[in-house]
Write a protein that binds this DNA or RNA. Structure first.
Lengths: 232, 232
DNA sequence: CAATATATCAATCTAAAGATGTAAGACAAA
DNA sequence: TTTGTCTTACATCTTTAGATTGATATATTG
């Protein structure tokens, strides 16, 4: 398979010159990859990416000077279809999560066997997203944890359930920034009726004003635009 | 390894009786697992889970009557440490995402080889979270997509950047549901000063009232409580 | 049928929010 | 030094929001 395809062009970014050399030699041995550039600086790497338009970038994300994650983000913003694989010394769940969140197509530990890196590159070159099994497990633990709080707060007595259908409509319009007049116009009812509904909503949600009502709605899984708490 | 451990107790929930039988036979052949119950009903399954406290539940999530995802959620809420593996006929990214989000420890396609299911059970029984590689790739595509919009909207001109430090403080307190008096008290400044800040914030964010300001802040990555757009 | 919940509307009043203009002191940059 | 920005503050005025009470019509349900 791989033999028939054009060789994938690879750019290496790693502040550790020794490791950089090692990876370069490793990849050069592979017939399906071609190293088009190497650099120990994230900033230079971004410029090389613009210049050479590689298919894949192997990016060390544990660089003391510039943050590798930030570099990935900048490369993703270029929107040039460059696929970045994060290289890291740590199997830290938070790091893995953040790397995948900003668009890394893979995450490989430096301590992993070189065959693992080549496999990841093969998968990513084929358009897939690849994470080693062990890291996937880590990722999901972190991922599920970030939803646990939310699950709890939504399993607590959710005051939103006490709202009538009409009140939900009104609240929905409130969460879009409408005032009384706007809501009345959209629901084809009088402004005073809207006031009645809004006051009933305040009572049921135990809040004092519309801002608090909107915040309650958004933080407790109100249907329209459900937002999940995932810190960056 | 596995031989020395106590057999893991498994509960099977699948509305398809034939498939249920097949999986049961398959698992019964494995020395490390013991089927403690089977049912074609999600509701009965939840009750069996409470009663028998299995280590693992294999849950079909493509049931017409009751939603398997909802059943998983209810089991997770029990917080009994029961590990649920989702069984599905579809490798739909949204389904996979939702299953993992609500706490499934694995997701296996019914069309996959039985060895794959056993492997998933081994991993999950060992405390890990397991997704077949192909499904992991699917999951991440969906996952990264859900953050793309956010990345764009935050790379677009973000009006929040025009706020001064003090204005950010005021906006922060606004996003917590404070009124003028509350903000003035917390910042040790007069209420009229708060009004000035708030009015300036409105001008800069191009909104008409505090609710719209709060919504703008929350939807554009305001630091305090960053919310990400991931629909359930 | 009677009781209850919901949706509609109005009047009235107070409090809060918002718009606008002005201005003084602090501080940093040109 | 001057210029500009930021923070503070006040006065004034208009509008909106919110609380309260009461009333009617319509389903729904026991």
């Amino acid at each position: 398979m791989r033999e028939f395809k054009r060789r994938s062009r690879v750019l290496l970014i790693d502040d550790n010159a020794d490791h950089l050399r090692g990876v370069k030699e490793l990849i050069t041995l592979e017939s399906s990859y071609e190293v088009v550039g190497t650099t120990t600086s994230a900033n230079i790497g971004i410029n090389l990416a613009k210049k050479y338009r590689p298919d894949i970038i192997l990016m060390d994300i544990n660089m003391p000077e510039k943050d590798g994650l930030q570099a990935i983000q900048e490369i993703e913003k270029l929107d040039m279809g460059i696929r970045v694989i994060a290289l890291s010394g740590y199997d830290d769940a938070d790091l893995i999560f953040r790397a995948m969140k900003i668009g890394a197509k893979g995450y490989v530990l430096k301590t992993m066997a070189s065959a693992q890196l080549i496999y990841a590159m093969d998968e990513v070159a084929a358009g897939k997203i690849y994470l080693p099994t062990a890291l996937t497990s880590r990722f999901f633990e972190y991922f599920q944890n970030s939803f646990k709080e939310e699950a709890k707060s939504s399993s607590e007595e959710n005051l939103l359930t006490y709202l009538t259908a009409r009140e939900e409509e009104v609240l929905d319009l409130l969460t879009q920034g409408n005032n009384y007049k706007g809501i009345a116009g959209k629901l084809f009812i009088s402004e005073t009726t809207v006031k009645t509904h809004v006051n009933n909503i305040f009572q049921k949600l135990q809040v004092n004003d519309r801002t608090q009502a909107v915040l309650y709605a958004l933080n407790n899984g109100f249907a329209n635009r459900r937002l999940s708490k995932i810190a960056v």
